[in-house]
C-alpha cells in the first residue's frame, strides 16, 4: 500500500451525495438606491424589474475569492466540525484566483487546516462551474480516489467590472459556497451522471480579455492592450441560453433515466430573473417546481446554484428524497446539467 493512500477511501464503487452546504456573502451590500446615486443616468428601477436583483454583495478591496471560499468553508465547519479531518480533496472553482500560481486551492488546504494528504485543484469555470465541480467530485469518489470532497465556488467578479458598465454591474455580485460531497454505499440515490456542452466560438461574449498572456502577445504584435474589465454581450448570452439550456437539461434527464415530470425542483444558474423566467416558459415548467430568487444576492457566477440549494433547503422546498435538476450555463460558452436525488445524509 502506498504511504499516502488513505484508509477511509471506500474500496468499492460508492454513490456520491451532497451531505452539507454553506455559503458566505461579503458584508458590503450595494443597494439600488446607492447605485442610483452613483449613476443617476441609469434607470435602475427598470433594470431591476428585469433582472430581479435589488442589491448585491461586493467584496472589500482587500478581500479575495480565496478569502470568500475560506469564509464559506469555516461557516460550514462551524456546524460540522468533524468534517474537517475527513476531507481528502478540495476543489476550488473560480475565475478570480488569488494567484496565477500557486493553485489557490493549495493555499486554502493550509488555511483551513485540512490534511496534507489532501488533493487540491483550481477549476477555471464560471456559471457552469458548480455542476462541473459536482461531476469532478463524483469522478474522484466513484473511482475510489477520494471519499470526502470539499467543493468551493468563489468569485469576485466585481474586481473585473468597470464602474460605468451598466450591463454587468447591475447583475453580478460576489460570494462563495462550500459544498461537501461524500461517498455512501453503492446503490443509494445521489448525484447522477452529468451532461456537459461547450461552444468556444462564443468565448468573446463573456470575457476578461486583458491581464494574462494573450495580452502580452497582442501588445508585442503591435496591437492595443485589451481591456482588463469584464465584457458581456448580453444579447448573445441570452440567445445561447435559450438555444443550449433546454438541450443540456434533456441530456441530463436522459443520463439519469428520468423525465421532466419526475423532477421536484429545477435549480438553474440564477443568472437574472428575466432570463430564468424565459427559460421556465420555454421548458414549460410550473413555477412551483422552479427556483427563481436572487433579489438580494445577484448573480454570483458558480455559487448561484449552491446558494439557491441552501435557501431551498432552509425554505423546506428540498427534503431527503427530493429529485432536483441543476443546470449551469454561461462563460465559455459552456453548460452543464445533472440530476441530484437529495440525500438523507445531508445535514443542515
Amino acid at each position: 500500500m502506498l504511504e499516502n493512500s488513505r484508509c477511509d477511501v471506500p474500496p468499492t464503487i460508492s454513490t456520491s451525495v451532497i451531505s452539507g452546504l454553506s455559503y458566505y456573502l461579503p458584508s458590503r451590500e450595494v443597494s439600488l438606491a446607492e447605485l442610483s446615486r452613483e449613476q443617476p443616468d441609469w434607470d435602475v428601477q427598470r433594470i431591476a424589474a428585469k433582472t430581479g436583483i435589488s442589491s448585491r454583495h461586493i467584496a472589500a478591496e482587500t478581500e479575495t475569492a480565496g478569502d470568500l471560499a475560506v469564509a464559506a468553508a469555516e461557516k460550514f465547519f462551524s456546524t460540522r466540525p468533524g468534517a474537517r479531518a475527513s476531507i481528502d480533496y478540495v476543489i476550488l472553482c473560480t475565475q478570480s484566483p488569488d494567484y496565477f500560481l500557486p493553485t489557490t486551492a493549495c493555499t486554502i488546504q493550509h488555511r483551513l487546516g485540512l490534511s496534507t494528504r489532501c488533493g487540491a485543484i483550481d477549476v477555471n469555470q464560471g456559471c457552469s462551474g458548480f455542476v462541473v465541480g459536482l461531476g469532478l467530485a463524483k469522478g474522484l469518489i466513484e473511482t475510489g480516489q477520494a471519499g470526502s470532497v470539499l467543493l468551493l465556488t468563489a468569485e469576485t467578479y466585481s474586481k473585473y467590472i468597470h464602474p460605468d458598465d451598466r450591463s454587468t454591474r447591475t447583475i453580478f455580485g460576489d460570494g462563495a459556497a462550500a459544498t461537501l460531497i461524500e461517498a455512501v454505499g453503492g446503490g443509494a440515490p445521489g448525484i447522477a451522471v452529468p451532461a456537459y456542452a461547450t461552444d468556444g466560438s462564443g468565448a468573446a461574449d463573456l470575457i476578461v480579455e486583458g491581464g494574462a498572456f494573450r495580452e502580452r502577445a497582442i501588445v508585442q504584435a503591435g496591437g492595443t492592450a485589451p481591456s482588463p474589465h469584464l465584457h458581456m454581450n448580453g444579447q448573445a448570452v441570452m440567445a445561447f441560453t435559450l438555444r443550449e439550456v433546454p438541450r443540456i437539461v434533456e441530456a441530463a434527464l436522459s443520463r439519469a433515466n428520468t423525465g421532466s415530470a419526475e423532477i421536484d425542483l429545477f435549480v438553474m444558474h440564477q443568472a437574472n430573473a428575466f432570463m430564468l423566467e424565459t427559460l421556465r416558459k420555454k421548458m414549460a415548467i410550473e413555477p412551483e417546481r422552479y427556483w427563481n430568487d436572487i433579489a438580494s444576492i445577484g448573480n454570483t457566477v458558480s455559487s448561484t446554484i449552491p446558494i439557491a440549494l441552501r435557501q431551498a433547503v432552509d425554505a423546506g422546498r428540498i427534503r431527503a428524497g427530493s429529485k432536483l435538476l441543476l443546470a449551469g450555463f454561461g462563460v465559455g460558452l459552456s453548460s452543464a446539467a445533472v440530476v441530484v436525488e437529495w440525500s438523507p445524509a445531508f445535514t443542515a
Binding site: 428585469k50 448580453g234 444579447q235 441570452m238 432570463m275 420555454k282
Partner: peptide, 24 residues
C-alpha cells in the same frame, strides 16, 4: 440593450425563432 434581450425572448417564446444578436 435591455429591450433587445427582451425581443430575443419574445421571438423565441412566441415563434420558436432563434434570433441572434448578429441578426438584430
Amino acid at each position: 440593450s435591455v429591450s433587445v434581450v427582451a425581443f430575443i425572448a419574445f421571438a423565441d417564446l412566441t415563434y420558436n425563432a432563434a434570433v441572434s444578436a448578429d441578426d438584430i
